[in-house]
Nucleic acid binder design. Structure first.
Lengths: 117, 117
DNA sequence: CGTGAATATACGCCTGGCCATATATTCGAG
DNA sequence: CTCGAATATATGGCCAGGCGTATATTCACG
């Protein structure tokens, strides 16, 4: 994976994408409906941002029946993983990070996510 | 320093600002003309981006005679410093990071930068 | 003061990127 | 084959933000 430095930061610059990535970093693998519910955003919005992340090589997707599961790209460069780790550890109150995770876990009828293959 | 997570990444999303920050991270303190020369960009362009970084609380400036020196803000949160450190260590070839540093050191008549007070 | 060097700001233009809405695709169930 | 659920894409509008150029500010020096 080469992943341009600038490309990662452009991806992280949008709050919706950043929240998705932090959730994926913490949870491993999530499908679109879970992310939609956790962030409380519209489905097309989430889908569009996930497509951007996919095209940038930051996440990878896996279709399973009706659901599409996303996870951080397995070959994501170490430095990029480090950026996410450090960010997750240091988020201030400006991002609803904790609330997103809470909403995710409170979601009824979650499709059974396992782990990113 | 509170520095919103999103604000930092928006700052890093522009290549000019990212290059400035990486140079400041490596060199400690630099004046506008040094950055202008190192990046090979126009003076107003550098100045405008530095102003944004200053307003975001990411860098701080110090006037000394005719020159204005910039450095990473002394109270920059730890996690933000970590992001810069990790990034500097992991830059791929897409950013002229090494070339910028080279151009800086090759610059004639550099004002004597010391260290960020 | 007046002049020139270093830096900052103002202005107008224009592209990129975000959004909401609507529509297309894909797939399992029956 | 049809239908509905989950997801993806297309379209058009809109605004943030980047750029170059021109101009303003600030300061050392004589």
């Amino acid at each position: 994976m080469s992943l341009a430095t600038e490309a990662l930061f452009r991806a992280l610059a949008d709050p919706t994408r950043l929240r998705c990535l932090l959730l994926l970093h913490a949870e491993g693998e999530l499908c679109v409906c879970e992310l939609t519910h956790a962030l409380g955003e519209s489905q097309p919005k989430i889908s569009r941002h996930l497509a951007q992340l996919r095209e940038a090589g930051i996440v990878s997707d896996r279709r399973q029946g009706l659901w599409v599961y996303y996870c951080l790209h397995p070959q994501l460069p170490t430095w990029a993983q480090e950026v996410l780790r450090v960010t997750a550890a240091g988020v201030t109150g400006d991002l609803p990070y904790a609330a997103d995770a809470q909403a995710l876990h409170d979601m009824p009828n979650r499709p059974g996510a396992v782990c990113c293959a």
